[in-house]
Design a protein around this nucleic acid. Structure first.
Lengths: 349, 349
DNA sequence: TTGTATGCGTTATCAT
DNA sequence: ATGATAACGCATACAA
């Protein structure tokens, strides 16, 4: 058992064929006679050879079958977001036909430890919500000719981008509310920037997170004077805190709340219940994302359903195309408005 | 630009040093004079060389820096479980010092497509809740000498296992309830087996999921006659359905419910509220896992806190040890009982 | 501190 | 259908 592991050459010798023939038996790239295949397979079994070493194969082929997925946050944080999870699923689907898998990469990895964009054997990379912190490694990767795609972010002009019509979609929700007669509307926004600790968004507040800014713009297109309170993250509990803030002063209660995510919306609904308000009779609430919020029944959010899995799939298709030497264009996906039971006519004044 | 990518030999030649010297400049394995380093780095910059090719390096080194994580379900399903997410985080932490990253692998990958335990360039593999479906690939992997560790599952005797004292822990929660005077207790269990569709667990029901069986045993140790209703998954909505079932008949309402997960417990609480029962005055509820359930405030579950991140970290440490040629022992982690505000004295009859 | 030599295990190409 | 040959790009043992 202390002897070195068998290689394909050992198998070939044992089977009395050439290494290239043995290789072909395992790869199936070329027809092989049944008899030969048998002999090779038997030899392999005899030697305990379980197939080509992926490391050697990937060197020779120039492909590793690995697509890196870069998050800018802790994994635990990333996967708390149902939309990201769905995207991962779509991504996994789309790269599977390539024979590729997903390697989890964290931006901000403590230097030196851990794999990075530059040290991992990647065939391609997908950046999720790239903030710009990793621009340098990004350049290195692109210099190496590794295809890169960005989801919900901006990594420079020539990096294909998978996006969403955030502004337009949010405008639809707002219009829906206006049609229902709402005039006093408040917005519960996603964080304004990394490290943001909940609070009102003033005129001068710099919003560096694209999604937040775009959805906000869409809401303001319809309700230019709507006040906006930005949460510290996309969680029910954060929506609850924001909602309490909105409903604190009975005199200035909005009749409708535009939340920038379904989880925030769920929290706002809780806050409304707490304040003795009925949804949608006293206050209407809209969400964004179109995920299924566990535990929210019997409410069914009025929301914008974003094709999260499709986004992941598109990103996968894009890197697949690029790996095959093609080019991939940026794509913008469209949300679908879904009317649930959390919005209704504005209450009489 | 159409020329082939520069290699470390090109860089060495350009810098007027030997390939090995250039290699050392990038790996840092051996001291190099400042002047030489400069020359090499400059040459690299001039040629657009961005560092050693990870594929070649991994063949030479015999290591890829990749640890496979195998799930038996869709990624979307796996990451819905907060415990798994935390484990992933711990795992990522623990393998980072190895310079390794996590490759997501799905069990049941449609044959032929996608990377598998056998085709991916893995240094080690971690199986999560291994059901036994992938026993064959597992054998192949182990034959190849790749270290394997299992979390919450069983892959055979000589595969180290990271476990939890499920039975003992659940017994603690049950004892707590008995101490509080509860006698009519019901159990809301996790699924009995893959594909299970909620329902009462009868005497003859085969329970193939270890966690479910062990936690159930712990509860029955204290309340041998407690009826158990198994949900279709660990979700708030599933707990709600189970709870409705339990509280349907006022005459046979339990005074306490032992839920096998925090999410189920949250759902049971919702069901209790629905039925007009106060928690914990009318009915006590215990959970399991010790995660933070978003949106459950002001309730704070009485639950068993499992060291989820630690489990992941331990799995990582185990594979790290095995990669370095050592051996890793199985470990069983212990839950910590946490008393929240969802349990109280049994109501007077 | 630097250079020389070798092989890691495969697979693509081309010829047979 | 099969075989001979030549890379793939690097890191290490060892010598200088």
């Amino acid at each position: 058992m202390s002897t070195r592991r068998a290689t394909i050459s050992d198998v070939a010798r044992e089977a009395g064929v050439s290494p290239s023939t043995a290789s072909v038996v395992f790869s199936g790239k070329t027809p092989v006679s049944d008899a030969t295949r048998r002999r090779v397979l038997d030899a392999a079994a005899a030697l305990g050879y379980t197939g080509p070493d992926p490391r050697a194969a990937s060197l020779r082929r120039g492909r590793s079958g690995i697509v890196g997925v870069v998050f800018e946050e802790h994994l635990r944080t990333a996967f708390l977001d149902p939309v990201k999870t769905l995207m991962m699923d779509g991504l996994a689907d789309a790269v599977a036909p390539l024979g590729a898998g997903l390697l989890l990469l964290r931006d901000q990895e403590p230097t030196g430890s851990g794999p990075s964009l530059t040290t991992a054997p990647l065939d391609a990379a997908v950046l999720i919500g790239c903030s710009g912190l990793l621009r340098e490694s990004l350049d290195a990767v692109r210099a190496r000719g590794i295809p890169v795609v960005v989801i919900e972010g901006d990594a420079g002009d020539d990096v294909p981008r998978i996006g969403l019509d955030n502004r337009e979609a949010q405008r639809q929700a707002a219009s829906h509310l206006r049609t229902l007669g709402h005039r006093d509307v408040a917005i519960v926004a996603l964080p304004a920037r990394a490290g943001w600790e909940r609070g009102w968004l003033g005129d001068g507040t710099a919003i560096t997170i694209d999604v937040t800014r775009e959805r906000l713009a869409g809401a303001l297109d319809v309700f230019p004077d709507a006040p906006a309170y930005a949460a510290a993250g996309s969680f029910i509990d954060e929506g609850l805190l924001a909602g309490r803030e909105l409903f604190a002063d009975p005199a200035r209660r909005p009749t409708a709340v535009i939340a920038q995510s379904d989880l925030l919306a769920a929290g706002v609904i809780r806050a409304a219940e707490e304040a003795g308000l009925r949804v949608p009779e006293d206050v209407s609430v809209t969400g964004f994302d179109g995920i299924v919020v566990d535990g929210l029944a019997p409410y069914e959010l009025t929301t914008l359903v974003q094709p999260a899995t499709e986004k992941g799939r598109a990103a996968g298709a894009a890197v697949a195309a690029m790996i095959d030497g093609g080019v991939a264009a940026s794509i913008s996906f469209t949300c679908t408005f879904h009317e649930g039971n959390t919005t209704g006519p504005a209450p009489a004044p």
